[in-house]
Design a protein around this nucleic acid. Structure first.
Lengths: 240, 240
DNA sequence: TTTGCAAATTGATACGCACCAATTTAAAAG
DNA sequence: CTTTTAAATTGGTGCGTATCAATTTGCAAA
């Protein structure tokens, strides 16, 4: 895991940053770091680049490399997108494993939109999987997923009552490593209100998009309607 | 702008991808590209790395580099975060320049939370700037921003009636290049409903966070309440 | 035909060098 | 003391080489 040079440098720098070892929030220049770590400048650059696009440090040509003061104040919020992709994962990382209730499970012909998004032919079928996710007795998400039969012809009720990505990885040997998602807000429907325990004026947050296998095949189109209090998407944006 | 080697390679590859010049959605291997472009493999790698984290291509050790099929289907949605940061910018890129109505403009002592977020002292003051943004006669966002007096002591009504980031860049010579934002949903308040023309059951999308200057100084804390139909945040996530 | 292993392919990591561009620092000029 | 100019600092770009790790391909064995 940590036998890569740039990885070790990264970990160490992160630790030193946390211990506030850099006065003025300023890191040594790359050439010095290269010397003191006894590694090439390229590896230092790679380590710094990773930290930079995690938003932990800022680099500025001509003046140096600086710690993002926000990182010092609250490191917890620096776990955002990119670290988790499936829902089970990203929820587990919050400390608790959510349960899954299977609401519906059937095979339907792919709609035009699904054909488009999952690159299907005209007569292709997809699984439609509707599930309710809860923490304890507090449901927080209605998830409707569409998966081409062609990719996983052997889905069962049992499988889709658990983590599908998990099944895919352990049983089929394929991994979901990418997703393209849109985040929106919308008024709650009657069904949302009933299932998620929302008042009529309380909305849902929607996360909708496509999950890809590691070879680029679109694997699932997913529409997730979240209790609005459970949607908080953190993101660090920088323009170049 | 485009006199960098990896930049040129990137542009060219992007164009060739769009013209569908790569059969099987598979790009030539890095060594061949290096030869055919007459540049070093390092430069090819850099170009490919950029395309990869834009989500345009996938790289897989041992098997090759592939075009994201989603990119071929709809290139338009591939303009997501990272390209724009301010609101004026990100709205302009949608084809229209929004107007700004100044709702409120005053100086207030910084709250505890603001002290925390903007790294202020106990007796610091901030501008509170409340503005309404509209496309034509359709308002879509209520924006409340807080800017430390210490950073920009000379804000006027006139300035805050336009683009603040623009003023900062042209008049002060500082640039906002980074932001840390959270995206949420919430029921609309009476004020939201009145200003944004929402029905009582229609929600707002909230984007809230901190904008940073290029030297890492937190510049503004901003809370943006959007008409829910105008919030759509696209993001491409990949885990390594 | 199928299975298993070796070789070839392909991206990833690491090192090092040279030079460029933005910024800061220090010296010189007024 | 301020302004101007030159030098030093610091991250960015580009080239080239060597080696490793994951995957695919092709050959050989069963």
């Amino acid at each position: 895991m940590a036998d890569l040079v740039y990885h070790k440098v990264m970990q160490d720098l992160k630790a030193r940053i946390s211990r506030n070892e850099f006065p003025n929030n300023r890191l040594p220049d790359e050439r010095s770091l290269s010397e003191s770590y006894g590694v090439s400048r390229s590896s230092i650059k790679r380590a710094l680049a990773f930290l930079a696009d995690q938003g932990i440090i800022f680099k500025k040509r001509g003046s140096g490399t600086f710690v993002n003061p926000l990182y010092m104040k609250s490191k917890t919020i620096f776990h955002y997108d990119g670290s988790n992709i499936g829902i089970t994962d990203s929820m587990e990382s919050m400390g608790e494993t959510p349960q899954i209730d299977l609401l519906d499970f059937k095979v339907v012909p792919a709609s035009k939109e699904l054909e488009q998004d999952l690159f299907l032919e005209d007569d292709d079928f997809v699984y439609e999987i509707k599930r309710l996710r809860s923490f304890g007795d507090q449901p927080f998400m209605i998830e409707t997923g569409y998966i081409p039969i062609r990719i996983t012809p052997k889905l069962t009720k049992q499988i889709v009552s658990g983590s599908i990505f998990n099944y895919l990885e352990t049983e089929i040997g394929k991994t979901v490593t990418r997703s393209f998602m849109s985040i929106m807000a919308a008024p709650s429907t009657k069904e949302d209100q009933r299932l998620l325990g929302l008042k009529p004026n309380e909305p849902v947050g929607i996360m909708e998009g496509i999950f890809f296998l590691d070879d680029g095949t679109p694997f699932e189109f997913s529409n997730m309607r979240l209790h609005y209090k459970y949607l908080k998407y953190n993101t660090f944006v920088q323009i170049t």
